[in-house]
C-alpha cells in the first residue's frame, strides 16, 4: 500500500498549504471558461422539433412539434397536448400536478416530468442539439 505512507507528508503539507495556489488559479480559470461555454449553450438552446414521451422508461410517443395534437399517453391517465411548437401535459391524475404546472415546453433539452406516474416528456431539436453540444 504505497498511498498509506503518504499520510504523514499529507498532514504536514495540508496543515501549511494556502487556500488557493498557482495551480488552483490555472484550473479555476479553465473551469470558469468551460462553465461559461456550457452555460451559453444551455441558456440558448435550439427550438425543439421532436417530442418524445417515456412512461416508466419506455418510449411510448414520438411526435413532431409542428403539428398541433391532443393525445392520451398510453398506460396512464395523462394527456399530451402539442400546440404552437410546444408540448404540455394538460391532464393527469397525479397528486401534486407538478407536471401540469410546468406548462408548455418547446426548447430543445426541455423536459416535463411526472414523478408519481413515471412520465417523462422530452423535447429535442432535429439533430441540432445532441448531448449538449451544437453540431
Amino acid at each position: 500500500m504505497r498511498f498509506a505512507s503518504h499520510t504523514e507528508k499529507n498532514i504536514t503539507h495540508y496543515k501549511k498549504a494556502p487556500f488557493l495556489g498557482v495551480w488552483d488559479f490555472v484550473l479555476l480559470l479553465a473551469l470558469i471558461f468551460a462553465a461559461t461555454v456550457a452555460l451559453k449553450y444551455y441558456i440558448e438552446p435550439e427550438t425543439g422539433s421532436v417530442c418524445t414521451v417515456y412512461v416508466d422508461g419506455e418510449k411510448v410517443i414520438e411526435t413532431d412539434l409542428l403539428t398541433d395534437s391532443v393525445t392520451a399517453i398510453p398506460g396512464t391517465h395523462a394527456v399530451l397536448t402539442i400546440k404552437d411548437g410546444a408540448a404540455a401535459i394538460t391532464e393527469n391524475d397525479c397528486p401534486n400536478k407538478i407536471c401540469m404546472k410546468t406548462g408548455f415546453v418547446g426548447r430543445a433539452g426541455g423536459t416535463i416530468v411526472c414523478a408519481p406516474n413515471k412520465i417523462v416528456v422530452k423535447i429535442s431539436g432535429g439533430g441540432y442539439f445532441v448531448t449538449g453540444v451544437h453540431k
Binding site: F3, H6, K9, N10, H13, Y14, A17, P18, F19, L20, G21, W23, D24, L27, L28, L31
Partner: peptide, 18 residues
C-alpha cells in the same frame, strides 16, 4: 480525490470541485 491529495499540487477546495 486520493490521487489529487497525494500529489499535493492543488488545494482542497479545487480538489473538491474536480
Amino acid at each position: 480525490t486520493a490521487i489529487l491529495i497525494d500529489i499535493r499540487k492543488i488545494s482542497l477546495p479545487v480538489t473538491g470541485i474536480l
